[in-house]
Nucleic acid binder design. Structure first.
Length: 242
DNA sequence: GCGACAG
DNA sequence: ATCTTGTCGC
């Protein structure tokens, strides 16, 4: 986590003790309530890094809403800040995501992050952290639980169970498609749990993960495999011939 | 002290 | 997350 010469200083460049203190402080700024709808664009954000890799790749893909047509995508390649430590994911993935965010021509109205929102030991998972930092409504969409417990979830799409941690409902475990393993959805910044759940379900197109998340995952994977440098592009305008 | 533990 | 072949199912 030591800052390298020439590397831009950012609020993630701290040791674990400072990181924890920062989380406890920033958690107080999170507003896990409200409904951003109606909004015009929604984005998926993800990052990728192989074991032993020197760089971590991040990507953000913006879609129009509610038609989910791709609008713009941005990716970044930055040095790995620190190893993965449960509870401190944003300090590993944040720098790259911040860089990708800065590369966007137009910032989205809402972002889906791959990880927890407030369903975190200190209520500051990556979605909540980035939401506050970027001042954008955000939702955490994780593939597994970090903390908290829940009742069994029904087998059909839409079935859900509250995720409870230390007596607080911090999110929910949501079956996004029939039969698939449930997603863990929790509010990030400026979005309440109910709105978060409805948005995640509406952002799906037949797969377990929401489309923006799948697109970001696909992009970051390609960027890493092909060794792309930081960049971005606008997508084709809708309409086409006719 | 022991087990759990987003990506 | 990543490493990995085949394989079961729609």
């Amino acid at each position: 986590m030591r800052q390298e010469p020439g590397q831009l200083s950012h609020p993630f460049d701290v040791d674990l003790g400072q990181a924890r203190a920062l989380q406890e402080r920033l958690a107080g700024a999170v507003r896990a309530a409200g409904d951003p709808r109606p909004f015009r664009t929604i984005a998926g954000a993800d990052s990728s890094c192989g074991r032993g890799d020197r760089d971590v790749f991040a990507a953000i893909v913006v879609f129009s809403w509610p038609d989910l047509a791709p609008v713009e995508e941005s990716w970044a390649r930055v040095p790995v800040p620190m190893p993965y430590v449960p509870g401190y994911l944003s300090f590993r993935e944040g720098p790259g995501l911040l860089r990708a965010w800065e590369g966007l021509r137009h910032h989205p109205d809402l972002v889906l992050f791959d990880g927890q929102g407030i369903a975190h030991p200190r209520r500051l998972g990556i979605a909540a952290h980035m939401g506050v930092l970027l001042e954008v409504p955000s939702i955490g969409v994780a593939k597994s639980v970090l903390c908290g417990t829940h009742a069994p979830v029904g087998p059909r799409r839409g079935a859900r169970a509250d995720l409870v941690h230390r007596g607080e409902v911090v999110g929910c475990v949501l079956r996004s498609r029939d039969g698939v393993r449930p997603l863990v959805v929790s509010p990030g910044h400026l979005v309440g749990l109910e709105a978060a759940i409805e948005i995640v379900l509406d952002a799906g197109r037949g797969f377990r993960l929401p489309e923006p998340t799948r697109a970001a995952d696909a992009l970051v994977g390609r960027a890493r495999r092909e060794g792309w440098e930081t960049g971005g592009r606008m997508m084709e305008r809708g309409g086409g011939p006719g």
